[in-house]
């Protein structure tokens, strides 16, 4: 790669008390590329995503996004990123439109309303935009989380389990979001258990195991029967 990576993670460690959730992950992600984070439960995917989103500080190691240090420039990094968390990610007694308003105000966006409406329609959430999200199904919640992550067209799009429990229309809409982001030069990190979908959406795949990176391969190598066998071998 001639260009420097937008997301550059070196020897990342995250500890929660006695538990080491991430044990020395290295990761680079480039502009205009989508990278999949694959691995079993507890591999450290979501914790890594939380670090990149500025939600959890790293215990050790360096993390830079667009040249900014996550420890020193957390607020600036939050401006650059759009984050769909792995669990929920929605304020239960606010409506989708109120979520968009909150995000737009805190990110100082102007003229965002049309894009907001369009995204809600694309994810088939237009008719529930004024309903509190506490009554949403899991899939609806996931779709809205993707909308919220993508609404401000971030330079780095962090999608943690965006396909979990989502119907095919939601999956298609998420693919479109990823494709749009790549087309405008954004960096996408996608964490998922669903290898097939990750292969379709991403060019590169990183496999994590026990809090460490065990492989960085071209996503194509993970496709088909052969890819499934290779993936399984990496997980065991």
């Amino acid at each position: 790669m001639s260009q420097p990576p937008v997301v550059d993670v070196r020897s990342l460690h995250v500890r929660f008390g006695e538990v080491e959730a991430v044990a020395g992950i290295d990761l680079e992600a480039y502009a205009g590329q989508a990278t999949a984070l694959l691995g079993r439960n507890g591999a450290g995917k979501s914790t890594t995503m939380r670090v990149l989103a500025g939600v959890v500080p790293p215990t050790a190691g360096t993390v830079t996004i667009a040249g900014l240090d996550i420890r020193k420039d957390t607020l600036a990094i939050k401006q650059l990123t759009g984050y769909c968390p792995d669990v929920g990610g929605l304020v239960p007694r606010a409506t989708p439109w109120e979520h968009l308003q909150l995000s737009a105000r805190l990110r100082r966006l102007d003229g965002w309303e049309e894009r907001g409406r369009d995204l809600l329609e694309r994810f088939e959430l237009g008719d529930v935009m004024n309903r509190v999200t506490g009554g949403f199904s899991h899939g609806m919640g996931r779709r809205l989380s993707v909308v919220l992550a993508a609404m401000h067209q971030p330079q780095v799009l962090l999608l943690d389990e965006p396909f979990d429990g989502v119907d095919p229309i939601g999956v298609e809409a998420t693919f479109e979001i990823i494709a749009d982001a790549r087309a405008r030069g954004a960096t996408i990190l996608l964490s998922t258990h669903l290898r097939d979908l990750a292969v379709q959406a991403c060019g590169t795949a990183l496999v994590l195991r026990g809090g460490s990176r065990v492989a960085a391969v071209d996503a194509g190598e993970m496709s088909g029967e052969e890819g499934a066998r290779a993936y399984r071998a990496l997980l065991d």
Binding site: R50, A53, G54, V55, L75, A76, K78, Q79, T81, Y83, C84, P85, V87, G88, G89, L90, V91, P92, A94, H99, L102, S103, L106, R107, T133, S145, L148
Partner: peptide, 16 residues
């Protein structure tokens, strides 16, 4: 706890 699971998303919003 008012934010429930939305706390993670809110924490990513760029504000002091």
């Amino acid at each position: 706890c008012l934010d429930g699971r939305g706390a993670l998303w809110r924490e990513n919003l760029p504000t002091s």
